[in-house]
Design a binder for these strands. Structure first.
Length: 677
DNA sequence: ACGGTTGTGACC
DNA sequence: TGGTCACAA
């Protein structure tokens, strides 16, 4: 839940871009003959024609709905074109949609800071672009307002019934607007209209229902919220929204206005309470995060009903497939974005056949992530065993493969998180890996106890992956920024010279971030349509130039002592090939590491050595300052060195307050954990 | 027997 | 911190 932020100086222009029936559009682009025809995207054709996950407008006209079965859809609309989601390794593969989403982001990001909210949703902060336009090319200076922009819906601007002269009112609104905030908003709307045309041209399939955009002037927010059902508000669609309805008898967001901040805090906790109080007033301090890439990757599959997995070998088979997909995506991320993931997590859901305690949840488990398909597979399987042992309890452990299982797995997923950038330096990834590697390797008595790790990892079926299971490696923890180490080289010969990397390199490539996101979410069907349907929302803001929380995490102390520098002469491709073939002994044998022997086993050892080490963060920063954040004049920040600026700004961010709500009144009690066998 | 899959964030 | 839960699309 967002944190309340300080009130603002300027008005911000935020667009929420929502691609409706995105999967359908992607498929129609791929297969143009589908354009204009009633189309839906379906997955898993096997059972009752599969489930619909996206429905195009032409099909909606027939009454086809999401969450219908393919067969039902055929009944309602015999003409319907059902396109199956690509399947790879026996499961849905969303790569094409993810990639199409990336195309969209890359177009939008040309105009402002983007936050990828989901595969088909983006927040875009257009404040700067709108201000520039207002200063240089204000709407009234244009000889014409674009057709696209004239189709805008403007909340609070009541259109005539016959609609024909609505465009004139819209034009009027664009051209002569008293309020500066609305002028900015108008500029934002023009930019969005442009962007949507660009996307239509490049990406999509010309939907029958034209994409639309909706403008929300701040003067219309009150009226909008007064009638907006509480469950339609973003974040309130679930249990929180339900509990508000039940406990406060509110129906719309505006109904929340009658309650004091304290009352809402008592009910929902201090942070959520304040957030709600603000939301009711149309105020939301969420910043547009300025993040174009996902923070994690995952691959999962459910096995409902009879498909539930009851044998280790089957579980292993599926885990291998899931891990294989995950590994592929990690390599792509590494190649394209120069990032590595540090944590591997396994989630499963299960039920017990005979047991009364079948409500018990299968615990998720995680460990350091080692690159390489079979390593990931191995680790995931170990995590599964760890989870299973906990799930079934020690008494049943021995039954394992032999007798009939008393457990059945209904869902498996593996995910990779804690993704960090590799410094984008002169020459790439390899030295980074090598650097990490080398640092640890030489600062420790390498070979002696590392062989033991290998044994633990490779041959034991018990779980040895968690940090606690390995001896600490203090030197590494002090001297490196990464929590674990990956092999440093591909089959190519690599020359190593001197260099040093720290996370500051990462920080500098990102300008400080500012802006706020208004998280009003309006009813999709009435307010947006397919491609690029968007909302423009003007909102008040906080200080300029604040770092987001996520960026704050990247501010780390400089690596001081290690001044060894390195340089690689070959490109990055070799390391990718290396990862791709990491399990091939032949490749491993070709690796030469200066000073140490190069057997594959040792490589694995090195990779494993620092499992569990975490990079430092500046979480003690608040202690270091004796000023209150509001005593600092933001303008003096610019005088400071860049790193310091970042830190101070991070510190000036409103901190989330500890939730000290009395237990009796905590809304948490209201929520009963949903049993999920 | 749940649309399934993927992702983020809060809390303890 | 890792693990669990909630929420969204």
């Amino acid at each position: 839940m967002p944190v309340a932020r300080p009130e603002s100086s300027g008005s911000r222009v935020i667009a929420h871009v929502d691609m409706d029936c995105f999967y359908v559009q992607v498929e129609q682009r791929k297969q143009p003959s589908l354009r204009g025809r009633p189309t839906a995207v379906v997955q898993y054709n096997a059972w009752q024609g599969g489930g619909l996950i996206a429905v195009g407008y032409e099909a909606r006209a027939f009454g086809v709905k999401r969450s219908m079965r393919g067969d039902e859809a055929k009944k309602v609309c015999p003409e319907i074109e059902l396109v199956t989601v690509p399947v790879s390794r026996g499961k849905a593969d969303l790569t094409v949609y993810r990639d199409a989403g990336s195309e969209v982001v890359s177009i939008l990001s040309s105009k402002g800071r983007c936050e990828r909210a989901s595969i088909d949703e983006v927040y875009l902060d257009l404040t700067e672009a709108a201000e520039t336009m207002l200063a240089q090319n204000p709407p009234e200076s244009l000889e014409a307002i674009s057709e696209e922009a004239l189709k805008s819906h403007i909340l609070g601007l009541h259109s005539d019934k016959d609609g024909s002269d609505n465009r004139d009112r819209v034009r009027e609104w664009f051209l002569s607007n008293a309020d500066r905030r609305d002028k900015l908003l108008a500029c934002g709307a023009l930019i969005v209209a442009e962007l949507r045309m660009e996307m239509l041209a490049k990406l999509t399939s010309g939907m029958h229902k034209p994409a639309q955009q909706t403008i929300v002037p701040s003067s219309s927010v009150e009226e909008l919220l007064a009638s907006l059902p509480i469950k339609k508000m973003k974040q309130l669609g679930g249990k929180l929204g339900t509990s508000l309805q039940d406990k406060l008898a509110v129906n719309t967001v505006g109904d929340l206005l009658q309650f004091s901040e304290e009352k809402l805090q008592d009910l929902c906790g201090i942070n959520t309470g304040t957030w709600l109080w603000n939301i009711a007033r149309g105020v939301c301090g969420d910043q547009v995060e300025g993040r174009l890439l996902p923070k994690s990757h995952g691959s999962g599959k459910t096995f409902p009903g009879r498909q539930a997995l009851r044998k280790f070998s089957t579980v292993q088979k599926w885990l291998n497939d899931l891990c294989s997909e995950l590994s592929e995506r990690l390599l792509r991320d590494l190649e394209q974005n120069k990032r590595i993931a540090r944590t591997l997590t396994l989630h499963a859901s299960a039920y017990k056949l005979n047991d009364s305690e079948s409500l018990k949840k299968f615990p998720s488990k995680s460990c350091s992530l080692r690159y390489g398909v079979t390593k990931i597979q191995e680790d995931a399987l170990n995590l599964f065993h760890a989870g299973l042992r906990e799930y079934v309890g020690v008494y049943h452990e021995k039954l394992k493969e032999s007798t009939q299982q008393e457990w059945a797995i209904t869902g498996l997923s593996v995910s990779a998180s804690k993704i960090v950038d590799i410094p984008t330096g002169t020459n790439s990834i390899m030295k980074y890996f090598h650097h990490q590697n080398q640092t640890c390797a030489e600062l420790n008595d390498v070979s002696s106890h590392q062989d033991n790790f290998l044994l633990d990892l490779g041959t034991t079926s018990s779980i040895g992956l968690n940090q606690a299971d390995y001896p600490e490696n203090d030197v590494c923890e002090d001297e490196t920024m990464l929590g674990h180490v990956v092999p440093c080289s591909g089959p190519d010969d690599v020359k190593i010279e001197d260099d040093v990397y720290t996370y500051e390199d990462v920080d500098k490539k990102d300008p400080s971030l500012s802006g706020e996101k208004q998280s009003l979410v309006l009813q999709e069907d009435t307010l947006t349509s397919c491609l690029g349907g968007s909302h423009l929302i003007s909102t008040e803001t906080g200080l300029e130039s604040r770092l987001t929380k996520s960026k704050m995490d990247l501010v780390r102390p400089r690596l001081k002592s290690d001044k060894k520098k390195r340089k690689i002469e070959k490109g990055t491709s070799s390391i990718l090939r290396f990862f791709g073939n990491q399990d091939s002994r032949a490749n491993l044998e070709t690796f030469q590491e200066s000073g140490t022997s190069s057997s594959g086993k040792q490589l694995e050892n090195i990779q494993q050595t620092t499992n569990g080490i975490t990079p430092r963060t500046c979480n003690s920063r608040t202690d270091a300052w004796s000023y209150k954040s509001d005593e600092i004049d933001p303008s003096v920040l610019n005088e400071l060195p860049l790193e310091v600026q970042a830190e101070v700004r991070a510190w000036m961010q409103p901190q989330k307050r500890a939730n000290v709500v009395k237990k009796g009144s905590s809304i948490a009690h209201y929520f009963s954990p949903t049993p999920n066998p």
